[in-house]
């Protein structure tokens, strides 16, 4: 693609420019048998009887941030939704809504990142769509991805948490809040710079390793918006079980901690894009922890708490200073302090 060009309305009109854009950019980078055929629908062969199917739309602002961009999120987010269900992610669709005047170079950077991430995650982008809207009718670029994965029969229970019980251990694969702080730092108006990278990454490799320990993993959820606190609250409420966590065991980077102090945020509620909360059986907990820690994306994995029979529906946290408090769903927005 030539540089210094901008997206025009005609790039989404279905005519010559659309055709050039698809061939010169999307097919060029995403190339695979299904996409290259340019059929109306991708025709996919699957080998399992259970299919996991998910979709998500990405509207992050700003679109480029330390450690990633909107395209990386769009691939990793959907791959992770499939992976935490216990499925093996295979195929993605990808829909772009682009604002007229969007720089072609930026689009190419985003598409290239998506292709790289898809390759790392071992998934194929097999179908897609592009729409261009008038300037001011969307904010730069929005991306929707949907994903399909195959699931073995004995993994079906994971999404529902059917087997979760008193005594199970809760594991997180590393430090929490990195993505939230990276996005905060990238917002222009804040005049605040930080070296923190978003943790945005596809987790199917890491999860795949742990899933090999048969029956060990009883529940998984990626801790995105609302952070790990929200995941734990939802689990406690839906299973009518108690959860007890220990603040001192939850990995939080020093810089994230410090930034949270300044802005009045709580790292437990900050968004992550590469963190999975796992509930695992007590007997397999240490084994799974070792497997996770052996993977590059799980080096800092830690057991942060357990499922309890007491206090059903509630998440209780032992604070770092030995106090006790209830963790609840994110209450409204996380707002900056003024006093």
């Amino acid at each position: 693609m030539t540089s210094n060009q901008n997206i025009l309305l005609s790039h989404g009109s279905g005519g010559k420019l659309s055709h050039d854009l698809i061939g010169g950019l999307f097919v060029k980078y995403f190339s695979n048998d299904h996409l290259d055929a340019q059929t109306d629908s991708a025709i996919l062969g699957l080998s399992q009887k259970n299919i996991a199917f998910t979709t998500d739309s990405y509207v992050v602002d700003p679109i480029f941030f330390q450690g990633g961009n909107i395209g990386k999120l769009a691939v990793c987010g959907t791959v992770n939704d499939l992976a935490v269900s216990g499925a093996k992610p295979l195929y993605l669709s990808c829909g772009f809504i682009i604002e007229e005047g969007f720089p072609m170079d930026d689009l190419e950077t985003i598409v290239k990142t998506m292709a790289e991430e898809a390759k790392i995650a071992g998934v194929k982008i097999v179908t897609g769509d592009t729409k261009v809207v008038n300037r001011g009718k969307c904010d730069k670029i929005f991306i929707n991805t949907a994903g399909i994965g195959e699931m073995e029969e004995d993994k079906k229970h994971i999404s529902f948490g059917t087997n979760v019980e008193d005594g199970d251990k809760i594991i997180i694969n590393g430090s929490v809040g990195d993505h939230g702080i990276a996005i905060l730092a990238a917002r222009e108006s804040l005049n605040f710079k930080s070296e923190i990278n978003s943790d945005c990454v596809a987790l199917n490799g890491l999860i795949g390793d742990a899933l090999n320990i048969i029956g060990g993993i009883k529940f998984m959820r990626d801790a995105t918006r609302g952070g790990i606190a929200t995941v734990l609250c939802e689990l406690a409420k839906s299973k009518k079980l108690g959860i007890s966590i220990d603040e001192k065991n939850i990995p939080v980077k020093e810089i994230v901690k410090g930034t949270c102090e300044i802005f009045g945020f709580d790292p437990l509620y900050l968004a992550n894009e590469g963190k999975v909360v796992m509930v695992v059986s007590q007997k397999d907990a240490d084994h799974i922890l070792k497997v996770l820690q052996a993977h590059p994306l799980g080096k800092e994995s830690a057991i942060i708490g357990e499922i309890t029979g007491s206090n059903p529906g509630k998440v209780l946290m032992q604070t770092e200073v030995g106090g006790r408090r209830i963790i609840d769903m994110l209450a409204g927005e996380m707002l900056p302090r003024i006093c």
Partner: peptide, 28 residues
């Protein structure tokens, strides 16, 4: 009155008593 749908100011501000109670100490 909840943080999502506050009636009084104390439920809105992160420093308000009602908000702090709701967030950290509900029923506790």
């Amino acid at each position: 009155c909840t943080p999502q749908n506050p009636v009084g100011a104390c439920m809105v501000s992160s420093e308000g008593s009602c908000h702090a109670w709701y967030r950290y100490n509900r029923e506790g």
